[in-house]
Nucleic acid binder design. Structure first.
Length: 399
RNA sequence: GCGCCGGUCGGAUAGCGGCUAUUCCAGGAGACUGUAAAUCUCCGGCCCUUUGGGCAUCACUGGUUCGAGUCCAGUUCGGCGCA
């Protein structure tokens, strides 16, 4: 993998670049489409490519459990197995320490609106007590979400599985903490993640796969400036090919946290912001030095009836759309908008037809993927701020 | 005409003497950020001084009872059977 920076913005941390992988280039900034189980839900990979996606991201934990990483290797890696003939990423499985642990247990998300002190006290003590996950120094013990069987991931095992899956860019094994975790716990988890990063890197470098697959280290530290900076220094000094910024955020502080980190990370390597992708977050991330994003939001909310428009999100199942014969977004050039109306999509949801998920996912992914492309273009033209302001003004209905 | 069975929210249901009448569907709204998500949450009689409170309600009328959707009688509507 190689990363070339084409242009740096003078007035912010933003940059335009190209990541070269064995399966093609990614023009950055870019939105990476999530296909956890080696499929983007409701879509064929041809549909995903047609809407403009440059790369895909799958998940180590899910593919290890089903169908098994050995099988994917045997099939000819993920490129052959699932016909993903474009650049690909795999997440390390570390996020599941959070999503199947404390997040499930306490029903909290990774991005928090309101950090309440009472919650912090309640949750800090039981941070690792999720029913499906146990964390220790060596690794993480999971219960399978499929059959309840017990499985263990260590940094070495995660990398081995990711080698078997064969994505172009893979991630070090890390621990994602709850935004409600105490400072002390965030520090403890961050330090563990650093030790795991070193082990992930050493294992990776010892294998032949490291010549084809790039390994990104992950910066943690929650929403605390000192921890984020310490994590960026520690991970940034290691010989990774690029970096992921992970963990939990206070909704208001995502961009500042990203900025703290990117001021420290080496400039010449790509930075991926893990799991963030609301329109406003894309602008905030990019101007703070993020090169790639992945996020489930466009596809998940699509399946649940929420669709992006230039004027904000709409819930297409609302009764007022049942006889609305306009496009989802009047300015959208996606396949869905060029062929179907709001009324039709609304009908498909009410009738519980599968096509609702497909057409909605195409639209939302197109919206986000191409928004990032527009942002990239605005950067090349030196009009980032102008584009950002006009987009967000309209999207958030603020005048 | 006689007999039997039944009428509970828009639909379908639970409840078989007790305190807040259940659940599912349809309907309305909201949530979702490295996917246990085609998922989840909330609303659904009326009124008020609405973080609460009050009054109703199980076809209708009357009765038994401390207490009735529930038991009894009649009425009414519907289904089935027999003439």
């Amino acid at each position: 993998m190689r990363f070339n920076i084409i242009k740096e913005m003078g007035n912010s941390r933003g940059r335009v670049g190209v990541i070269e992988t064995p399966h093609g280039n990614i023009e950055t900034p870019a939105f990476i489409v999530v296909g956890t189980k080696a499929t983007v839900k409701a879509l064929t990979v041809e549909q995903v490519k047609d809407l403009g996606a440059q790369a895909l991201l799958a998940n180590t934990y899910h593919l290890y459990l089903q169908p098994g990483d050995d099988l994917i290797k045997k099939a000819g890696y993920i490129q052959k197995f699932s016909n993903w003939d474009i650049p690909s990423f795999t997440d390390s499985g570390g996020f599941q320490a959070f999503s199947l642990g404390i997040a499930l247990n306490k029903k909290v998300g990774k991005v928090s609106d309101k950090i309440e002190k009472m919650d912090m006290v309640d949750i800090a003590g039981s941070e690792t007590s999720g029913d499906l996950v146990k964390i220790d120094e060596e690794g993480i013990t999971f219960k399978s979400i499929i059959d309840g069987s017990s499985h263990r991931f260590t940094p070495e095992r995660s990398i081995e599985i990711q080698h078997n899956i064969g994505a172009d860019i893979i991630f070090a094994f890390d621990e994602c903490t709850s935004p409600h975790a105490s400072y002390e716990y965030q520090r403890e988890a961050m330090n563990r993640t650093h030790r795991w990063a070193k082990r992930s890197l050493e294992y990776h470098k010892s294998k032949e796969a490291s010549k084809k697959q790039a390994l990104f280290g992950i910066v943690q530290g929650g929403r605390h400036k000192d921890l984020r900076e310490e994590s960026a220094r520690t991970i940034g000094m290691m010989d990774f090919d690029g970096f992921g910024i992970g963990g939990s955020f206070d909704k208001q502080d995502i961009y500042s946290a990203v900025g703290w980190v990117n001021d420290i990370l080496p400039k010449g390597k790509p930075r991926h912001l893990l799991g963030i992708g609301e329109p406003a977050d894309l602008f905030g991330g990019i101007e703070n030095g993020i090169d790639t994003f992945d996020c489930v939001t466009p596809t998940r909310i699509a399946r649940n009836g929420s669709l992006y428009t230039r004027d904000g999100k709409i819930n297409i199942t609302n009764s007022k759309y049942s006889d609305d014969f306009e496009k989802i977004d009047s300015e959208c050039g996606c396949y869905t908008c060029s062929h179907y109306t709001r009324a039709y999509i609304s009908h498909l949801f009410r009738a519980k037809e599968m096509l609702a998920a497909t057409l909605s996912s195409i639209h939302n992914l197109y919206f986000i993927v191409n928004l990032v492309k527009e942002i990239r273009q605005s950067m090349l033209e030196g009009k980032f701020d102008e584009f950002k302001n006009s987009f967000l003004k309209r999207y958030t209905h603020l005048t």
